[in-house]
């Protein structure tokens, strides 16, 4: 009987407290797994340095985060979405449909994307976008003809590269990183090798040619990694010939097992990325739901804390971890201060 009583009372307590405690006190964040490390650093520091509770930061990818962000306004929706890409029109449409009309865009800095391989593996030390395209593109230009990629070794198309089998571990399509890899490496390589021009000459429209350029071979030569960089690292460690795509911060944390390749002759460092010399980088963002400012305690304070000079500046903990700080941080600080929203119409 006592078991029954206890059960009944526990249920009652749970039910009462569930209705009483719906007022959320912590900031809720979700989105890009690239931004997650930075957001968690800031969230910890925010909890340590202010009297607000530590925000909850979830992962899941930029697109998934923005989708949850656009689900509506209210305590059951997230306050901030992290994203490794700018917000798209389709995201904004979804937001508008659900009444999320005022969105503040905050750019926190830049992230470099690097090509790295086993430290004792073949000498993959210098790549050009054309090399990556010739190795991984589904169709490439050989002797003036557009053909299905025949290359099996890096040395097949560039004698300076090692005569080792081509294997590459690239981010899966749900990652924002994939888009940057396609736009800034494959597409550039496609144009440089003349493959794109040849495709268009053969009667393809520009859009079709671009789509053909960013198509990868698959078939075990390119492997999509849908998980985190730790998965890519594990695959590289198991495969000496493998080349993997990583974020700069992840590479810098694992320099004892990875070596990085230059791109276009430039070594990826926070300095070369900040200066714009290293070609493969992208801005990182988070988006704030303005309707939640003043309703959920700490939303604006967290955003201000995040982009303060002490945190996101060149000497702050984020730069320490691998974020390339934004030279225009002051403008972003002003945006948050005045709660300037995106023009969504």
């Amino acid at each position: 009987m006592s078991v029954l009583k206890m059960t009944a009372s526990t249920l009652a307590i749970a039910a009462i407290s569930a209705t009483a405690a719906t007022a959320r006190e912590n900031v809720q964040i979700a989105g890009s797994s690239t931004v997650l490390p930075y957001a968690s650093i800031v969230a910890e520091a925010f909890g340590d340095n202010t009297d607000f509770p530590t925000p909850v930061v979830e992962s899941g990818g930029s697109s998934a985060g923005l989708k949850r962000f656009c689900e509506g306004v209210g305590e059951n929706t997230i306050d901030i979405a992290n994203s490794s890409r700018p917000i798209r029109d389709s995201d904004i449409e979804l937001c508008l449909e659900n009444g999320v009309t005022d969105i503040i865009e905050v750019r926190i800095g830049y992230d470099g994307i690097v090509f790295a391989s086993q430290i004792d593996g073949p000498a993959y030390t210098a790549f050009e976008p054309a090399d990556i395209f010739n190795a991984l593109g589904a169709t490439v230009l050989v002797d003036g003809e557009v053909v299905a990629n025949p290359h099996t070794q890096w040395a097949d198309f560039n004698a300076d590269l090692p005569a080792d089998d081509i294997v590459a571990f690239i981010p899966g399509t749900k990652h924002g990183t994939r888009e940057v890899f396609e736009d800034k490496v494959l597409l550039v390589g496609c144009e440089e090798t003349g493959a794109m021009a040849a495709m268009m000459e053969s009667g393809m429209s520009e859009d079709d040619a671009e789509d053909a350029c960013i198509e990868v071979r698959g078939n075990g030569i390119t492997v999509d990694i849908d998980g985190d960089y730790t998965e890519t690292l594990a695959r590289i460690e198991a495969n000496p010939n493998g080349v993997g795509v990583f974020g700069l911060a992840f590479y810098e944390n694992n320099t004892d097992s990875l070596k990085v390749a230059t791109m276009g002759g430039v070594e990826p460092t926070t300095e070369t990325i900040a200066a714009g010399d290293y070609p493969v980088s992208r801005p990182l963002f988070f988006f704030i739901k303005q309707a939640h400012i003043g309703v959920i305690p700490g939303v604006k304070e967290f955003a201000q804390f995040f982009i303060a000079d002490e945190i996101a500046g060149p000497d702050g903990p984020l730069a320490q971890y691998g974020l390339v700080s934004d030279p225009e941080l002051a403008a972003t600080q002003a945006t948050v201060e005045t709660e300037e929203t995106l023009d969504v119409n």
């Binding site: 749970a14 407290s17 957001a39 909890g47 909850v56 979830e58």
Partner: peptide, 20 residues
């Protein structure tokens, strides 16, 4: 939403333990 940077605070009571 229980995976991520979440376990940052000890609950300060029974209700908080269930709901925070």
């Amino acid at each position: 939403g229980m995976v991520g940077f979440v376990a940052r605070e000890y609950p300060d009571g029974v209700a908080s333990g269930f709901l925070d």
